[in-house]
Design a protein around this nucleic acid. Structure first.
Length: 455
RNA sequence: UCCCCGGUAGCUCAGCUGGUAGAGCAGGUGACUGUUAAUCACCCUGUCGGCGGUUCGAAUCCGUCCCGGGGAGCCA
């Protein structure tokens, strides 16, 4: 019976006859038989196969197996007499499904730089670290859905192609057809007006929040920024809940609960993979994650943040002054040095935030919140939305946005407007935080960055 | 886009102040071995990122372009 290695190792039943299918990691020969380590991606661990010379294809095939070959192994699970593994599979048949020429197969049984692996993105999930990232990412993704579904949120598939720019969220990729672009098509635009790939599902999520209450969207997002950093991608995934009848306090509460829920989840269910990261990628990772789960997030207002930075005695490249946007160095200092845990900064100056954020009673700040985490910086950005028609309209005009393109958005304030809030979580930044991977390009299967999209 | 650093064998890298290349791993062959980053011996591997310049001579110095990494900006 064909079984996955994760299931075999979770509940080993020696004496059982079973079959595994996977890829050879290494082969070591002893006198009269070979050890073959086979992994199938179901977990980090491989299973050791004992292939005896009595196998019909031992000399012809088994002895020629090398890293990357795919095999179907039938055998009997038995206790292992040697250290390193509790059980091993004594093969009665080793069927080679696909060869991998050792002269040209790029993956070796040694450390490879992530930079090198990135250039073979079609093969890199076969490595321990990238395979572990893929499993953790998948578990987190599923966890996002269970977190919201358990709380009665409705998932909304917001559009990927959009004609409304979520102002302030970055440059949009244009979407058109070859004939439209060349002007051959009547009207010049496939959609009748300029369209692009979404930079945020927020505005459309607001529509459904004001019909269904609590909703979330979780999908791909695109930014045509020429930014080349370890924290930015041109295509990434974003989690965006939007909640009607919810103020900034409730918003922050959901965000903190969600992050802790997801960390608890992977700590409980991805222990083996996280242990790998803790050992080889980011020492102390497990303790750091546990510490986040066990403590409340720190809360300060933007104004307090500015005061603390001014009083810190630190010299910053960018001088601190009320009204400036906090720079990376400022955010890092606060979350990594002062608080050493996730930090929520609220109530930013209205002048540096987008038009849709709710203006506070002081008239100069908005009900915004950023969650900063050590090592990554901003992982969540959110706000209470401006629900007052007049104020929203004024803010749009201040920002130089033509209201005619946003009539549908203004309608939400004309008809049964309610206080509501939401936030955006950069999913890859979450995966980065959880795995400790230094570069965001390693936590998405096929990273897209300026000048890079190989397949 | 800006600043800094880098591009040498399939991979990871060394190569000091200029004298036309090395190691480990991988690969091949053989030996040995309940092995597990196996071990030992032998063998193979290079337009030193591209182009131009200085020089008797350039991997090394200069210019320029391309690519990558780190940081910044922008943000998630």
């Amino acid at each position: 019976m064909k079984k996955r290695i994760a299931n075999i190792l979770a509940l080993p039943q020696t004496g059982e006859q079973l079959q595994i299918a996977g890829w050879v990691r290494t082969r070591r020969d002893a006198s009269g038989f070979s050890f073959i380590e086979v992994g199938d991606g179901s977990c980090l661990a491989n299973i050791q196969v004992i292939a005896d010379q009595t196998l019909a294809n031992y000399g012809e095939e088994v002895k020629k197996l090398s890293a990357g070959c795919s095999v179907l192994v039938t055998g009997i699970l038995q206790d292992s007499p040697a250290k390193g593994q509790a059980v091993e599979l004594r093969a009665t048949e080793v069927q080679v499904l696909g060869w991998a020429d050792p002269e040209s197969y790029p993956l070796q049984k040694k450390h490879h730089s992530f930079e090198f692996l990135r250039n073979i993105s079609h093969l890199r999930p076969r490595t321990n670290a990238l395979g572990a990232v893929a499993r953790v990412r998948s578990r987190l993704s599923y966890g996002v859905h269970t977190f919201f579904q358990e709380r009665g949120f409705v998932q909304v598939h917001t559009p990927i192609i959009t004609t409304s720019d979520c102002e302030g969220a970055g440059e949009m990729f244009q979407v058109t057809t070859p004939s439209a672009a060349s002007g051959a098509e009547a009207g010049g635009e496939f959609f009748g007006r300029p369209a692009g790939l979404t930079v945020s599902g927020q505005l459309q999520a607001e529509v459904y929040a004001q019909a269904l209450g609590n909703v979330y969207t979780f999908g791909p997002t695109f930014r045509a920024e020429n930014s080349n950093t370890s924290r930015h991608l041109a295509e990434f995934w974003m989690v965006e809940p939007e909640m009607a009848f919810c103020d900034l306090q409730g918003n922050m509460q959901v965000a903190e609960e969600m992050l802790k829920y997801l960390l608890r989840l992977v700590l409980a269910e991805c222990g083996e993979d996280l242990a790998l990261f803790d050992r080889f990628i980011a020492k102390g990772l497990l303790a750091k994650l546990q510490q986040v789960v066990d403590h409340d997030f720190a809360h300060i207002t933007y104004t307090q943040a500015v005061e603390q930075l001014l009083q810190s005695g630190q010299t910053f490249t960018y001088p601190v002054q009320w009204g400036i946007d906090l720079q990376s160095e400022h955010e890092r200092y606060l979350t990594e040095t002062v608080y050493q845990r996730p930090l929520i900064v609220t109530d930013y100056p209205a002048a540096i935030k987008p038009f849709y954020m709710r203006v506070s009673d002081d008239g100069r700040t908005v009900a915004a919140m950023d969650i900063l985490v050590p090592g990554i910086g901003e992982i969540i950005g959110g706000s209470q939305r401006e629900e007052r028609y007049d104020v929203l309209l004024a803010r749009m005009q201040e920002a130089g946005i033509e209201p005619s393109g946003y009539e549908w958005y203004l309608d939400l304030r004309r008809y049964g407007s309610v206080p509501h809030s939401g936030f955006g979580l950069g999913f890859e930044r979450l995966v980065q935080f959880v795995t400790g991977m230094a570069n965001i390009r390693e936590v998405i299967p096929f990273p897209r960055t300026p000048g890079f999209a190989p397949c």
